[in-house]
Amino acid sequence: MIERLSAFGRFVVDFVVGDDWLVAVVVVLGLGVTAVLARAGVPAWWVLPAAVALVLPLSLWRATRRR
């Protein structure tokens, strides 16, 4: 049972983080900022697209530099 839970945990981490942990961190932070702004009554639809637009070029640069 513990082995199956451990395997599931590894799958979730691999699925969420994938190849680039930085993208996962930025998306989680973007979701947090969106939640805070939405709770404050500020339109927050733009936060996640802006976060992706900022982190995608960095992620692509890092991926091409590694190879």
Rank of each mutant, 00 (worst) to 15 (best):
M1Q: 10
I2L: 15
I2Q: 10
I2M: 09
I2A: 12
E3A: 14
E3K: 10
E3I: 10
E3Y: 06
R4T: 06
R4I: 12
L5V: 10
S6P: 01
S6W: 12
A7P: 02
F8Q: 09
F8P: 01
G9A: 14
G9Y: 09
R10Y: 03
R10M: 08
R10N: 13
R10I: 10
R10C: 08
F11A: 11
F11L: 14
V13W: 09
V13M: 12
V13E: 04
D14P: 02
F15N: 08
F15I: 08
V16R: 08
V16L: 15
V16K: 15
G18Q: 07
D19C: 03
D19W: 14
D19P: 02
D19G: 12
D20Y: 07
D20K: 07
W21S: 10
W21A: 15
V23H: 00
V23W: 02
V23F: 04
A24L: 14
V25C: 07
V25P: 01
V25F: 14
V26M: 12
V26R: 09
V27Y: 08
V28K: 08
V28E: 10
L29W: 13
L29E: 08
G30D: 06
G30R: 11
G30W: 08
G30F: 09
L31P: 03
G32F: 13
V33H: 05
V33L: 14
V33N: 01
T34W: 14
T34Q: 13
T34I: 06
A35M: 13
V36T: 12
V36P: 02
V36R: 08
L37Y: 13
L37R: 11
L37G: 00
L37P: 01
A38S: 15
A38T: 11
A40V: 01
A40M: 10
G41T: 02
G41M: 06
G41Q: 06
V42Q: 03
V42R: 02
V42W: 02
P43I: 10
A44I: 06
A44N: 04
W45C: 00
W46H: 07
V47T: 07
V47P: 01
L48T: 11
P49Q: 02
A50T: 13
A50G: 03
V52C: 04
V52F: 13
V52H: 00
V52P: 05
A53I: 13
L54N: 03
L54E: 00
V55D: 00
V55I: 15
L56W: 09
L56G: 00
P57V: 01
P57K: 05
L58D: 01
S59H: 11
L60T: 11
L60W: 14
L60N: 02
L60E: 04
W61Q: 05
R62F: 05
R62I: 05
R62T: 09
R62N: 02
R62E: 03
A63V: 12
A63F: 11
T64F: 14
R65M: 03
R65Y: 02
R66Q: 09
R67M: 11
R67P: 01
